[in-house]
Amino acid sequence: MKRQEHSVTRQEWVINLVIKVSGYSSILFVTLIFLFLMREGLPALANAPLSSIFGARWYPIEGYFGIWPLLFGSVIVTLGALLIGIPFGVGTSVFISEIAPPWLNNIIKPVIEILAGLPSVVLGFLGIQVAAPFLRRLLDLPTGLSAFTGAVLLALIATPTIVSITEDALNTVPVSYRQAALALGATRWQTIWGVTVPAARSGILTAVMLGVGRSIGETMAVMMVTGNAAVLPHGLDALFKPVRTMTATIASEMGEVANGSPHYQVLFFIGIVLFVLSLAVNIVASSMSLRGRTRSERVLS
């Protein structure tokens, strides 16, 4: 009997250790990845002239390493995706959690999960064959391979993330809020727009920030449909012009560069920029959700 107890504690100890190691390993991996990025990318600042890195032209095989057009490309595609994705995503989740009857929800939710599971290269293929030609004719653009087409695809890719988190946020709004609003004579739309959505806004902001993170890191779909022309914007119509994103640049050029060359280091430097951007997005997202929690705790107490 005693022996058995002993072996049980041993088991506990081993299992605890395994769980701890897997928990800490994620911290270790992120740190190692970050150190690796720094080691490979930071020498770019020394080996490629700064005037070139912060220049306006990206043409690496002739020594033009300007990252501004790439940064701009990523930002504009992501912003475009949010402009389309937020109303679409939030609208969908309001419909799911407030309006749709349960039988319809049983159809919509799995479909959105399928959308989340679609490989982005498949969406990219649809984009290049269907969306780009269609948008070119519809908007009378010189070419359909533009930031806007990329933004449409990214909105589709970010929607499942936005929908699932927004829906969770809406579901945590106490039923009493809605009942109070309705009792005061508010219509259903007034209740949703004036009470439920504002009460869930911190959750919605988190959803949006995670959507940003999902969009800015997406590679394959944008590489296929944005045309990959590294241009700085000349006007407000830049959303409808071709752009080149940071992720697409890394993906299409990493295979050919010689190890340790300035071009290689600049690609890693772009990796650092991406890493820092998504880190910032994540920090903002988590600080928002924390702030939201303290506020709701304050309200309830």
Binding site: R57, Y59, E62, Y64, P69, I128, Q129, A132, P133, R136, P142, T143, G144, L145, M223, M224, G227, N228, A229, A230, V231, L232, K241, P242, R244, S252
Partner: peptide, 28 residues
């Protein structure tokens, strides 16, 4: 001569990408 492609040039990752855009787009 150190001229390079105009920055507006679309750099497509595959031959098929170029053929399909030219096939579809009368501007290309």
């Amino acid at each position: 001569d150190k001229t390079i492609f105009a920055p507006e040039t679309l750099l497509l990752p595959s031959s098929e990408g170029i053929i399909s855009e030219v096939r579809d787009n009368p501007n290309a």
